[in-house]
Every structure is written in C-alpha cells, then in structure tokens.
C-alpha cells in the first residue's frame, strides 16, 4: 500500500492508503473521495479526473502521453504545468507520500 494525500480546493486534506498497480483515480473514487468524477471510468476520454500534482513531485512522475496532454486542454478547471489526469497515474511504492490538489471543478 502506498499513501497518497489529496487536498480539496477548500484546504481539507485526506490521506489514502492505495493498492499498488491501481490508478490514482481508481484508488480515490474507490475510497469515495469527493472531487474526482472520472466519467469515462479510466479510459482517458473525459478529463474529469484532473488533479494538480505537488510541484515537488511533478518531475518524478512518468510523463504525459500525447492523449493525456490533449485531454488536459479541455479540462473544466484551469490547466497548470502540474496538471495530470489521475487515471493515467499508476500507484507504485516510489509514489509514497505523493500530494495532489483537486481543482475547483471537473465539469
């Protein structure tokens, strides 16, 4: 299990112990976390599982695919250099301690 911290737009934070090999999106929605919609169920189609990765972590994640990059342009909330789709981030032990912030809206 790997611990990931999600911070809501209002500052509330919640740390979840997620199973390695699942996606950040699957782990978060499975735990009933608010703020991630994931309409397409993790098929990289909808850009409603948008998160901002903490700056300290941004360079340590595998890079975006072209597909993810294009989808992020259509995300409902502002796109930042740290924007990612959480369905495209696989939980691995080296992500232990990762902090992500949730945008103010997904749709």
């Amino acid at each position: 299990m790997t611990t990931i911290t999600f911070i809501q737009p209002d500052g509330r934070s919640r740390s979840l112990a997620l199973a390695d090999g699942t996606s950040l999106m699957q782990g978060a929605t499975g735990a009933g976390l608010d703020g991630i919609v994931a309409e397409c169920g993790g098929n990289a189609m909808c850009a409603t599982c948008h998160v901002y990765v903490d700056e300290a972590w941004a360079g340590r994640l595998p890079p975006r695919s072209d597909e993810e990059d294009a989808l992020l342009d259509g995300a409902a909330a502002e796109r930042l250099p740290t924007s990612r789709l959480s369905c495209q981030i696989t939980v691995t032990p080296d992500l232990d301690g990762l902090v992500v912030r949730l945008p103010d809206r997904q749709i």
Binding site: E67, A70, D73, G74
Partner: peptide
C-alpha cells in the same frame, strides 16, 4: 474522432 469530440470541443 476523439479529437473531433474532445472535452475542449464540448466546451
């Protein structure tokens, strides 16, 4: 088709 029907186009 994914680009033609993308989230950005929906906006």
């Amino acid at each position: 088709l994914a680009r033609v029907l993308s989230p950005g186009v929906m906006k």
